[in-house]
Design a protein around this nucleic acid. Structure first.
Length: 270
DNA sequence: GTCCATGTTCTTTA
DNA sequence: CTAAAGAACATGGA
């Protein structure tokens, strides 16, 4: 559920809820097979620490503590990160509970366990992740697309090329820029690539403004669903009329992921 | 039973 | 060697 807009919304809601001294007094339910590095003493690292702030890098949610160490949590496909009262019932598939002074808890629930809980330490650690799409310069984006022959749709999902874009927003951005998803990335003209760069920023901005997309599982730290799914123009709309030209939206598979586009508006061209 | 799912990473193939 | 394609991971819903 979490692409950049959903992760950003979780971060925003967490920061709003974690005012002042959010002191950790207890850590439970740590799921060993989601820990990175495997076997690290997460509870030991966190106990007694205060959370200084929460931020985002790509799809990672980064917590910074008062000893300048950090962890990140990745929500994978089905992860939920919420703040709840200690007395709230503990749901199935709860893989982390961080108890804060004052009776609240940060909880991670992730049925499929594609997510991760990672100890980062104090040093910089981007792990070869590409630039943030909201900050990237068009010229940099164009250059990066030149580096691969893969279909542009597949390239947008590569977190080393550009961070934070997933299956929903790749399809939505390609539609907004009228770029066929199958075009080899390096075959896009500079002009088309620059337009795609702008479309990515517009689509992500709008999605953040609508608190992300809830297809099934996604909720923010308050438990609130997103609203952007109602504004999807192609994602999961195969067979329905294109909002621009009424041609039925098509669905194909690219790189093992379903891909939705308008065969008319996104017809093959340079 | 079948197919599909907002993601990443490891393995295989070219 | 590198780049790209495929499979795997684990669970639930239609």
């Amino acid at each position: 559920m979490p692409e950049l807009p959903e992760v950003q919304t979780v971060v925003n809601t967490l920061n709003a809820l974690l005012v002042s001294p959010a002191r950790i007094h207890r850590v439970d339910h740590v799921r060993a097979d989601m820990l990175k590095p495997a076997g690290c003493d997460l509870a030991g690292f966190l106990r007694g620490r205060a959370i200084v702030d929460v931020s985002r890098r790509g799809k990672r949610i980064i917590f910074r503590f008062d000893d300048s160490n950090r962890i990140y949590i990745h929500l994978g496909m089905t992860g939920r990160l919420t703040i709840e009262p200690r007395r709230a019932p503990v749901r199935a598939h709860t893989h982390l509970i961080v108890s804060l002074s004052g009776g609240r808890q940060i909880r991670l629930v992730d049925p499929r366990r594609f997510g991760a809980i990672a100890w980062m330490g104090p040093g910089p650690d981007d792990g070869a992740m590409g630039p943030e799409p909201m900050d990237i310069r068009p010229a940099d984006f164009v250059t990066r697309l030149q580096s691969t022959r893969r279909a542009i749709k597949t390239a947008l999902l590569d977190q080393r090329l550009i961070a934070g874009i997933g299956n929903i927003y790749a399809d939505e951005a390609l539609f907004a820029a009228r770029v066929p998803p199958t075009v080899p990335a390096r075959d896009l003209s500079r002009d088309r690539a620059a337009k795609l760069c702008a479309a990515i920023k517009r689509v992500l901005r709008r999605a953040i403004d609508h608190r992300g997309s809830t297809l099934r599982d996604y909720i923010d730290a308050n438990g609130q669903r997103g609203g952007f799914q109602a504004l999807h123009r192609v994602y999961d709309r195969q067979g329905q009329p294109c909002p621009r030209c009424q041609t039925p939206i098509a669905r194909i598979v690219l790189g093992g992921r379903s891909t939705h586009f308008c065969p008319q508006c996104q017809a093959t061209k340079g």
